[in-house]
Write a protein that binds this DNA or RNA. Structure first.
Lengths: 206, 206
DNA sequence: CTTATTTTTAATCATTTGCTTAATGTTTGA
DNA sequence: TCAAACATTAAGCAAATGATTAAAAATAAG
């Protein structure tokens, strides 16, 4: 019982994902993609009408795969400390499976594709983590943590989790890391990052 | 007394910097660059021999401008707390003047240009922050902070300072920020980030 | 001034790139 | 079974792109 052979359309989309993520929109050609998908250029346009169209399809899936889970976990109904550990743990594991997605998304969200941002905002793909904000306010009211700007805390969390993947190449080189070393490094951050966030939230309490 | 008219070569390099940073290597064409520099394509190749060559020149300058100061400040001879505040303050101001540099550098350091990493490593453009590591060890020995992995602390610092610029577009959209709002946001981080780092370093002390 | 060198221009070449077309093969459903 | 819809292929087009050339213009040197 062999796995279902993927449809041509799916093979093209997967090839496109690989190449767009690896080289960026401008440097990946339709012929690259066709070859990588083991078909020809005509089929790429037959299924997706244009390179731009294909890119949109790939980008939106990638975006949903990366940034939607992030807001999701933050709005979960969990105790603050548990939530933060869960967030770091799950996002880290997600990114270990697709380490280039963040840099792909952020880098394509410039220049001619910058307007996509707005489009996706309106599509509701990016709801603010309102539950998280309220939770921080409640915990502060109870005196469990100090009063904070939720946007700053959220940015800190995202920064600490995403950055090692965004700067993976530089990081690996700077510290002469093998793939395995890097994997260990981000695993260690499953402790470091929550401790950092919680230390900030709890610092300066009377 | 008007400022020296920039040479054609410099006008081309500046135009290239603007367009490479804005659109990436693959999406910026030599004709774009020539037009933006108010010359013609032949001159681009006359001064730089090839698009790839021009890119290398621009990239290396941008890299030096961004990542060398970072390691520099960390190795300065300053008390830990002062150093951290200075680091965040200076790098933030630097990035406010060139907010797209980080995403440019990280995004171009993939695909066909990934080998540049190694080349720049060997050129010594990326010395590890050894002074910072020793300082952290000494402070830990004195009991002023807890024992830490310097690489993790350094990564945290870089992450917290760089990330808002890397994710500028998403951030501005998610929180409906104007340019001014964003500027305020990163200025507030001049307090938030050092407090976060220091809270971590001082947490769990007996 | 004259010659040599450097800089600039316009025209052009060879490829590449996104996309289309027309013909052929394959599947599906009535 | 047969036609209608779908899938695939090879060939090619027009525009864009990186690079070059040869000649003209500007600048520097003797």
């Amino acid at each position: 019982m062999t796995r279902n052979a993927p449809s041509t359309e799916d093979k093209i989309k997967e090839a496109a994902r690989k190449l767009f993520v690896e080289k960026g929109f401008g440097s990946a050609t339709t012929r690259d993609i066709a070859e990588c998908a083991e078909t020809n250029v005509a089929l790429v346009n037959y299924y997706f009408r244009s390179k731009e169209n294909l890119f949109q399809a790939v980008f939106q899936e990638s975006f949903a795969q990366t940034f939607v889970p992030i807001a999701g976990i933050l709005n979960d109904d969990l105790p603050l400390e548990v939530k933060i550990y869960k967030f770091v743990d799950q996002i880290t594991d997600l990114l270990k499976r697709a380490p280039m997605l963040p840099i792909f998304i952020l880098s394509e969200m410039r220049g001619e594709h910058a307007p996509m941002c707005q489009a996706m905002q309106q599509a509701g793909a990016m709801q603010p983590a309102d539950g998280f904000r309220k939770q921080l306010e409640e915990e502060a009211a109870k005196g469990h943590i100090r009063p904070v700007d939720a946007r700053q805390v959220e940015a800190n969390l995202m920064a600490l989790v995403l950055f090692p993947f965004l700067g993976m190449n530089i990081l690996k080189m700077k510290h002469q890391m093998s793939d395995e070393d890097f994997s260990k490094f981000v695993d260690e951050r499953k402790k470091v990052v929550p401790e950092t966030i919680l230390a900030y939230l709890r610092s300066g309490l009377v």
